[in-house]
């Protein structure tokens, strides 16, 4: 995995969420609270891709994810006057996104429309795909789209709680403590859910796991 480039690079390294990062966000939040509405755009630019990624992986639908991401920022904007900085803005916006998405998915119920985001071409040249191609003896292009479908299907089979934890940890790269704070659960619960979810995924994706 050492040469897998941007694929293995955490989108949101937990280590970067230091006090300084939190303070920077808080400073921007204070600006918005003071009436500088334009400053909110800085927060949107900073977090939109991460929020979209979480919601997209929870819904497996790019249009829904786009709408829900926008609604997340609108909700945050409407509520920012009441944000007192007890948690970091990062935790707060993630919490809004996850709660909003969960509400949406519960309402959507059985209606499941899958609409995938185009996979980055870099990934097909990654080391893991070399191994997968060798194992499956499939053509690389076919394998990419097939695996994308299988991965999304497998994630959708998980319960919302398990799916959220897996996405935040394995895809977003957040630490257990951060996930516990976002989901308002204990670290033990996060670990337990993660363990169970991975077991489930292993059984769903056993064709690709050697």
């Amino acid at each position: 995995m050492a040469n897998s480039g941007s694929v293995t690079k955490p989108i949101f390294p937990a280590q970067e969420k230091t006090l300084t990062e939190r303070d920077l966000d808080w400073a921007v939040v204070r600006k918005v609270q003071a009436g500088n509405v334009g400053a909110f755009d800085q927060l949107v630019q900073k977090y939109r891709e991460h929020i979209f990624s979480v919601i997209y992986n929870m819904t497996s639908n790019r249009e829904d994810a786009s709408d829900l991401t926008q609604e997340t920022f609108i909700k945050a904007f409407q509520a920012i006057a009441r944000f007192r900085g007890k948690s970091s803005f990062f935790t707060w916006i993630y919490r809004i996104a996850i709660n909003h998405t969960m509400t949406f998915l519960k309402k959507r119920n059985r209606r499941r429309f899958i609409s995938y985001e185009k996979i980055d071409e870099e990934v097909s040249n990654s080391e893991i795909f070399e191994r997968l191609t060798a194992n499956n003896r499939s053509e690389k292009g076919v394998l990419v789209s097939e695996l994308q479908e299988k991965l999304n299907d497998a994630l959708q089979k998980l319960s919302l709680r398990h799916r959220t934890v897996v996405i935040l940890h394995e895809i977003e790269g957040l630490e257990h403590a951060q996930i516990a704070e976002i989901t308002k659960t204990s670290i033990g619960t996060v670990r337990s859910r993660l363990h169970y979810a991975k077991q489930q995924l292993q059984s769903y994706l056993q064709d690709y796991i050697t």
Binding site: K9, I119, I128, A134, L151, L201
Partner: peptide, 30 residues
């Protein structure tokens, strides 16, 4: 060496990223 773990497969999801055109539309709509 050829072993593939579930974590590695999940990290492939990081590659499902929208392009700049998507974000331009997103910003305008937002």
């Amino acid at each position: 060496e050829k072993e593939v773990k579930v974590e590695e497969l999940l990290r492939l999801k990081r590659a499902e990223r929208p392009g700049q055109v998507f974000w331009n539309t997103f910003d305008r709509e937002l």
